[in-house]
Structures are given as structure tokens and as C-alpha cells.
Design a protein around this nucleic acid. Structure first.
Lengths: 147, 147
DNA sequence: TAAAAGTCTACTAAATCTATATACTTTGTA
DNA sequence: TACAAAGTATATAGATTTAGTAGACTTTTA
């Protein structure tokens, strides 16, 4: 399961993606629109800023904005920045690798092999899907459900 | 990430799968072979037994064994029995569904839509892969790595 | 110069996970 | 029949992680 942190980060980026090109957006606006605790969101946006995904502007009229086009920000990046490993086992994680301490031989572990396959499929989707894709999917879903 | 519980469960089933058709196998043997804390493994095997995957035999010469052929036990079942949801978001989980409390409209949520896709791919793999498959993969890996 | 808005660090409460402890029941066999 | 082997059941402790809160500080604009 993704942590709340990761989920909030994605949601915030989607909102900022819709706002791309406009004036920066305040934390409190994002927080209230997306029902995210403001203080928690502050920390998350700061992380994303320090990672170079967002710019920020202090003072009156300040806020946050995307540095890059939402089509160039991929979901997998957000997971990694917010500490959510893609893999289901530490021994198949690219960025959060750890040896399974109960496993005697990684190279011949059948369990690992299965979860390697899962990771590859997951990674494929998440590294091909951008914030812009999420936004356009929402458009399609709204059409299809007639909401 | 899968919990230790889930990982130990899969490992234990693989060992029992290799032993299928033989006399029941003791907890302590499985525990020492797979480097799993014995007391913890006891609980896990008991769960798997109560779920109908294993039979047990008390007393001297007792132990655990698979009820069904390892080819008929799928990884997805083990995840579910040991509380490891397949989905990365509660709102796309089939067996552990929960509404995202920050989400206003599930039907048109683009984030959800992406993780629905991830879940589908993951589910496909895990519900097609059996304990027997894991065992035969190990055989292949041993050949390929020349160990 | 006051208000708006982000920055930074620390802290806490709750939940969950992992593991251990203890006492009990059943079964086989010497 | 008694003892040892082995599973059953429940409780609990310790560690870690997660989610969220608090508060004091800095920058910017009007």
C-alpha cells in the first residue's frame, strides 16, 4: 500500500499540474481542495521542492508551482521521492534494495523471481504514466460516467 | 512491501510443496531451513491450516503438510490470507477495499485509474503463479546460474 | 510595518509489525 | 502407562513506522 504521504504528493502534483503556467498556488488552497491536512502537506511539498519538482515563492501572493511540464513528471518519481518503494520485496527493489535476511541464495530464489516480474510490470506502468496522463484520464472518466 | 508474515508463509508453502506426498514436516525443520523464527512460524502455519491450505498432525511424528497439490495453491491466496493486500491503494483493492477519505469522486479519479491498472497487472501474475511454479522456477534458475 | 505565505525542526500519538512467552492438548512409543 | 514430541492458543512486549501537530522563523508584498 502507498503511504498517505505518497498519495497526497500525487494528488497535489495533479492539482498543480492543472494550474501549470498560472500564478503559484497556496498550500492552504491545495490542502482544502484535496482534503489534506495542511501542516502535513507543507512538509510534503517542501520535499518535492527540494527534489527539484516544484518551485516556491514566499510572502504574500506566493505559493507553489511545477518546475516542469506535467507531461514530464512521472508517477514513479513521486513514489521514490516520498519513500514508497515500487517493489513488493526489498530484494527486488531498484532504489530501496535490501537483502532478505532469511534468504540463502538470492540468485536461485523462485519467490524473488515472481516478484521481480511483478515489479517489472508495475514499473513499466508507473514510469510511463505522467501527471498529465492522470489529468487527461480524469477528463475521459468524467465523459464516460457522465458526471 | 509484503510483510514478513506473508514472506514466511510463501517460503513455508514452497518447502511444504517440495515435500508434498511425503510424511508431514515439523515446524522446527521448516523454521531452521528457512531461517524463520519458530514461534512466529507456528502462528503463520496455524493461520494457513485454519484457512484450509494445510493439514496438521499433533504428537510425535506430527507436523504440517499441504492439503492440495502445490499446483493448485496460488500466490495471491497466500497474500490475502496473511493480510497483504495486492493493491497499492485501498480504493482499488478487491478484498481490502476502503474509500480514500481524501477523495471526493472515486469514479472520476485519475490517480485511482492508474493504480487500478497496476493492480490488474499484479493480480494477473499473482493469481496465475502457483507454489509449484515457484518450485519449478527455482529449478530453472539453478540450471541457468550453474549453482 | 503588518500580514501573507513558505521553511524548518521537533515532537507525539497511534497503529502495526515482529517476535517471544507461557500454558495447554494430542499423539506415539518405550 | 508415562513421557516426550509436536501442534494449539492466547497474551504480551518491543520496535518501527506513519500520520499528524506545534511553534518559532524567514521572506515578500502592499
Amino acid at each position: 500500500m502507498l503511504s498517505k504521504k505518497t498519495r497526497y504528493a500525487i494528488k497535489a502534483l495533479v492539482v498543480l499540474g492543472k494550474n501549470f503556467g498560472e500564478a503559484p498556488m497556496q498550500i492552504s488552497k491545495i490542502a482544502s481542495e484535496e482534503h489534506i491536512p495542511k501542516k502535513f502537506l507543507e512538509q510534503i511539498l517542501l520535499d518535492l521542492r527540494n527534489a527539484g519538482l516544484l518551485y516556491s515563492k514566499k510572502g504574500a501572493g506566493g505559493g507553489y508551482g511545477l518546475v516542469k511540464d506535467p507531461a514530464e513528471i512521472f508517477v514513479v518519481q513521486v513514489l521514490r521521492l516520498t519513500g514508497g518503494p515500487v517493489a513488493l520485496l526489498p530484494c527486488v527493489s531498484l532504489n530501496f534494495y535490501q537483502k532478505c535476511d532469511e534468504c540463502s541464495n538470492e540468485a536461485t530464489c523462485g519467490v524473488r523471481d515472481v516478484f521481480l516480474e511483478v515489479r517489472n510490470e508495475t514499473l513499466k506502468i508507473l514510469s510511463e504514466t505522467s501527471i498529465a496522463d492522470i489529468i487527461s484520464r480524469e477528463g475521459l472518466l468524467i465523459q464516460n460516467t457522465g458526471v
